[in-house]
Amino acid sequence: MSPAPTLYRGREGMWMWLVHRTTGVAIFFFLLIHVLDTSLVRVSPEAYNEVIGAYKTPIYGLIEAGLVAAIVLHAFNGLRIIAVDRWTWALRHQRMLVWVVWGIFVVMMAAFLPRHLGHVFGGA
């Protein structure tokens, strides 16, 4: 029975490492499932239609929103990591760049979510 140690108080870089890995793994599993269900079309077009039809339900609509969020975060933070690896300026300003990534994320999601959720729940 050992008591819980404290959570290391890292800053933006540490949290973005966690975000990058979480989103990377999440995207990977989503793609894996998607490749599997798409390949169903070769096996049985009826089963394929049924599975793909499930994507039209609101639950999948929300999962899709999460997937888009994960990809946007992962992609722009990925660009930040590339910049940090490449330029000393970016390396020294990486914390500020984290907030640039979140800024882009917020703007892109603000543009995407109303349209997407309108489709999902508006029954278009």
């Binding site: 290391y8 890292g10 800053r11 933006e12 870089g13 540490m14 973005m16 490492w17 990058h20 890995r21 990591i81 940090v84 690896d85 000393t88 390396l91 020294r92 990486q94 914390r95």
Partner: peptide, 19 residues
Amino acid sequence: CRTAFNCTEACPRGIEVTK
């Protein structure tokens, strides 16, 4: 190295470790 920068922020000598 995953460039989390915890090393640079922890270094008591102010070394730019990640750099």
